[in-house]
């Protein structure tokens, strides 16, 4: 795909917002790929962590927000724990989720959850799941 790259993509407000919310500096990432290598769910992501960061560096926030990746991140912190530049892809995914959730768009609806799950699952699964998926 042809991507027109301009100053406004790189110096955009939305990137600044993602950096502020996540506390991460996108430019620190040098694309070594360790996060994707470590990530237990990268196999199922439409855009794996390393490439997600790259696309953010290039200002392609919309493409990243459309992908399922941020919803699949399990916050296990393997990516961060092995990152040679101490960048947390998990934090960036959380920031992207926040970007979406703060607009009031939930990823999961409570009413859709099956009753056996609600009855049998540990409370922490429900609480943390709500925090991650529900606006």
């Amino acid at each position: 795909m042809m991507h027109k790259l301009a100053k406004d993509d790189i110096q955009s407000d939305i990137l600044g917002q993602i950096e502020r919310v996540s506390g991460e500096e996108l430019n620190k990432c040098y694309q070594c790929g360790n996060c994707t290598g470590s990530c237990p769910v990268s196999f199922a992501m439409e855009i794996p962590p390393t490439k997600t960061i790259r696309m953010l560096q290039l200002g392609r926030v919309d493409d990243v927000l459309k992908a399922n990746s941020m919803w699949l991140c399990v916050s296990c912190l393997q990516c961060y724990s092995r990152c040679p530049k101490a960048v947390s892809a998990a934090n960036l995914f959380e920031a992207l989720r926040q970007l979406s959730l703060r607009k009031g768009e939930s990823h999961e609806e409570i009413k859709d959850l099956p009753f056996p799950f609600l009855k049998g699952a540990p409370q922490q699964a429900i609480v943390s799941g709500f925090r991650k998926f529900v606006s």
């Binding site: 042809m2 027109k4 790259l5």
Partner: peptide, 10 residues
């Protein structure tokens, strides 16, 4: 940009 795999025009 071979990292994202895309053609780039500036």
């Amino acid at each position: 940009d071979t990292l994202s795999g895309d053609q780039i025009e500036i």
